[in-house]
């Protein structure tokens, strides 16, 4: 079984997680830029964070044979802090990077006018940089936030198949799929979505344009819930090809639209420098 986790915040996870993920079949991840537990107060904090998810984190992942890509954006929560707003001017530098496969996470947190403005500006950046967009749907007032996100996406002119609406559930999935967008589901231990509920959604809505992720971060979450969902699919009557489609080929198709997804063997691509193996591991 090969697993591509299309949404996971590895910067918050340990090497033990990388080890367990690699052993369970996770071979590729996308790390979206998002908020941290502690709000940031200046653009420099963001650039150091962006550097980390396009630099250090892919290096760490490569040591476990996992391919790591990132999405870059000013997240909606911190878009409300005027001290963070200058980050928008720095985004084009990062959106030009080889390892950046989408603009994200953008979208709504509290649906403020500042969030409207920053969401629209970053959809325009996605168009400029010919990148797909990863849109977070709010945890509070989710149904209204989802519908409003779909409206903003439509107004922006970006092709719907280049947009992923994430953290969906039973109440919000239909609107996303009907609008032609990709539907993302974050499988969490207690909250957003569970493996069994996910299997029921796949039965009802099919496997087209559906992505399953762990969204594991600094909160209570589990980077192996992608694998648990794959197992639940098999137990629920789906076959191995269905699992491969949802947990590998679908994320490859979505992020592949960037033209920058590189899934070549990381051992070959990263572990040699000037013909020498350099990944003996820090002592």
């Amino acid at each position: 079984m090969r697993i591509f986790d299309p949404h996971i915040h590895m910067t918050s996870r340990t090497t033990d997680d990388y080890q367990r993920m690699a052993e369970a079949g996770v071979q590729a991840v996308v790390e979206p830029a998002f908020w941290l537990g502690q709000p940031r107060t200046n653009p420099g904090s963001f650039t150091d964070y962006f550097d980390s998810i396009i630099g250090w984190e892919p290096f760490r992942a490569s040591q476990f044979g996992i391919k790591h890509h990132a999405t870059i954006a000013l997240n909606p929560k911190e878009a409300n802090d005027p001290r963070c707003r200058p980050v928008l001017d720095l985004l084009p530098r990062y959106l030009a990077k080889d390892g950046v496969v989408a603009v994200g996470e953008i979208g709504y947190d509290s649906m403020t006018p500042a969030e409207d403005e920053v969401f629209a500006a970053q959809l325009a950046l996605a168009l400029d940089h010919e990148l797909p967009a990863l849109v977070h749907t709010p945890h509070r007032d989710k149904a209204r936030g989802t519908q409003r996100s779909i409206d903003v996406v439509k107004e922006s002119g970006i092709a719907p198949e280049r947009v992923l609406l994430d953290h969906l559930n039973e109440v919000t999935v239909a609107a996303a799929l009907e609008a032609g967008l990709w539907a993302g589901f974050s499988i969490y231990p207690d909250t957003k979505m569970s493996p069994d509920r996910m299997v029921a959604i796949l039965r009802e809505y099919g496997l087209d344009r559906v992505l399953v992720n762990s969204a594991a971060d600094w909160g209570k979450s589990d980077p192996l819930l992608t694998v648990r969902t794959a197992e639940a699919m098999l137990a629920g009557g789906f076959d191995k090809d269905d699992v491969d489609r949802v947990l590998w080929r679908n994320p490859v198709e979505f992020y592949g639209q960037s033209g920058r997804l590189d899934l070549s063997d990381p051992a070959e691509a990263e572990a040699t420098f000037a013909g020498n193996s350099i990944l003996r591991g820090g002592s």
Binding site: G55, E270, F273, I278
Partner: peptide, 13 residues
């Protein structure tokens, strides 16, 4: 200053 072996190697190479 980094812990990336490729950068350290390149700096001295």
């Amino acid at each position: 200053r980094t812990n990336d072996t490729r950068l350290v190697a390149a700096a001295l190479g």
